[in-house]
Every structure is written in C-alpha cells, then in structure tokens.
C-alpha cells in the first residue's frame, strides 16, 4: 500500500526506528512480494541505466524536429573552460540535465523519473553528487528509494502528469524527489528530507506545460536544468535547518489544486504559453506531417 502523506512515512520511521529509505524499500517488498535483494537489484538496474545513459550521450544528435540537441556538449565545454558562474558542481549538474533531456528527445534509452519529460532532474544531481563525493553505490540506491517515496506521495495526493497538473507535476515533482534524495545524502534527517521536497515543489508551483508543437523538447529539456538546480538549493536550505512554513503535505495538496485550476491549454496540449508564441506556431507548422 502506498503512503498517503509524507508525515505518515516520517512517523513510521520514528515508530520503527528505521531510516526513510528502509521504510520505502519494505513497502515495495510487501507490495510486490519480493525480497530486499530483489527490490534493490531492480533499483540498481534503474540507477546504472541512468549512469550509462549519461555516459553514452551523443553530442552530434539532433531531435527529428531539430529543435534540441548538442547543448549538453556546449555546457560541458563551458565547464571545462572555467566559464561558469556557479562553480563546477552546478555546471556539471546543468550539463547532465541537458544531456539526459536531449537524449530523451533524440530517442535514446532513458529512465522515466518520474516521467520521460523530466528524466534529467534526478540523474543530474545524483550522478554529479556520486562523482564528486565518491559515494558507495549502496548509499546512492538508498537515495533513489528516498526520491521514490516522495514521488509516491505526490502521485497519491496530486499527480505526476503534465496533462493532469501541468509541468509543476512533472519537473516540480522530479525536483522535489531529487531535493529529498540530496538532503538525505548530505546528512539531513527525515524532516530535512521532506522539507527539502516541500521547498523544491513550492518554488515551482504554477509551472505550466506548454510544449511547442506538443513535443517533449521545448521547454522540457531546459526545465530539467531548473528542476535540478532548484533541488540543490532546496536541499542546502533544508540541511541548514530552514523549514517550509507550509507543511510538506499541504504543499502537495496546493500543487494539486493549482493543477486543477490550470486551463487545458496549459496542460500538455501544445496550445498555450510558449506553444502559442509566433515562433512556437511557426515551428508547429513545420513539424506537422
């Protein structure tokens, strides 16, 4: 049975004196009737696929509409040449988020996390963190369970789909999941985990889904960057002891409400926002068969 609130997960952690990730892992064992090893194996497969997808980024590819591609390589170059303002860590995160988003648009293999459009957020921060701090694989997998637990609650109370809740439900949720995972990796306790998630989601509340031509390209690829960088900021705040003034579960409910209030034209229909700009419309004419 999945969890209906982040509070419920935290109180279960306290009652059973178990870490956040363990509660989510045990929930999966119960739900799918599998052993801890079997569950971990599958999570490892997902994480290693993210890793190989990042490593096999092809810097020559363009999407079939030719709207996206090659920007991950541009960012990599800027980092190497020391031209980035936010330091190497943020620079690499930006590059990785772009690369995964572009690989998705170019029909390469990715891991939906939680969706294909938002597939760059979680790997961008986790892979960069692992590289920089030499974290053992096992701990990275624990962080993946933390992220998944947050995603489960969002799916339960709100939604993870752009068509239902706008981009706040995709990039916003991915960012919340990533923020919780980062807070955990960086030594945060259970409350930091859920407050990192809450702040991350709050910061992206109201983000609309306005794909140009209805394709998962513009603005999706670059929104993976904002989701990833926002996750870092939120995790840093949470571990510093800053809390969300609105409790985490209430933030998720607010996201649902905002999503329901969004007009259809801003929910993955390719009609409003950036899609409706003169350039967006022009692009649309060229891609329709």
């Amino acid at each position: 049975m999945s969890f209906r609130s982040l509070d419920e997960i935290v109180s279960k952690c306290e009652e059973q004196k178990k870490p956040f990730w363990r509660i989510i892992l045990e929930d999966d064992m119960e739900e799918r009737m599998v052993s801890a090893e079997e569950s971990m194996k599958l999570m490892e497969k997902l994480y290693l696929t993210m890793k190989s997808a990042d490593a096999s980024y092809d810097d020559k590819l363009m999407s079939s509409s030719r709207l996206v591609g090659q920007d991950g390589a541009r960012m990599d170059r800027a980092v190497r040449e020391g031209k980035v303002i936010g330091g190497d860590f943020i620079g690499v995160v930006i590059a990785k988020a772009l690369k995964m988003g572009e690989s998705n648009a170019c029909m390469k293999k990715i891991v939906a996390a939680p969706t294909a459009g938002s597939c760059g957020v979680i790997p961008a921060v986790l892979l960069t963190y692992e590289e920089k701090y030499q974290v053992p694989l096992e701990r990275m997998l624990e962080a993946m369970y933390v992220a998944s637990g947050i995603g489960e609650v969002i799916a339960e109370r709100a939604s993870l789909s752009g068509a239902a809740g706008g981009c706040q439900a995709e990039i916003g949720s991915a960012s919340a999941m990533a923020a919780g995972a980062l807070a955990y990796l960086n030594g945060g306790d259970n409350l930091s985990i859920i407050h990192a998630a809450a702040m991350s989601l709050k910061n992206l509340l109201g983000l609309v889904c306005d794909t140009v031509g209805g394709l998962v390209e513009v603005p999706c690829v670059k929104r993976n960057v904002v989701g990833a960088v926002n996750a870092i900021a939120s995790a840093d705040m949470a571990v510093a002891g800053i809390v969300s003034r609105i409790p985490p579960d209430e933030v998720i409910d607010a996201m649902r409400e905002v999503g329901e209030a969004l007009p259809k034209s801003l929910r993955e229909t390719g009609e409003g926002g950036l899609a409706a700009t003169p350039t967006g419309q022009e692009v649309m004419k060229h891609i329709i068969r």
């Binding site: 799918r32 999570m43 497969k45 293999k109 998944s148």
Partner: peptide
C-alpha cells in the same frame, strides 16, 4: 502503486504515451 511505478520504466524517449505506449 509501487516504487517502480514512480521510478522507471527504462524506455526509449521521448514520450511514454507517444513512444513507449
């Protein structure tokens, strides 16, 4: 719903409905 309905699937992009489906 389980953990792997949230994390995953492994798929070829760009869209779970328009490509994977």
């Amino acid at each position: 719903m389980n953990v792997f309905d949230i994390m995953g699937p492994i798929m070829v992009g760009p869209s779970s409905s328009h490509t994977a489906g």
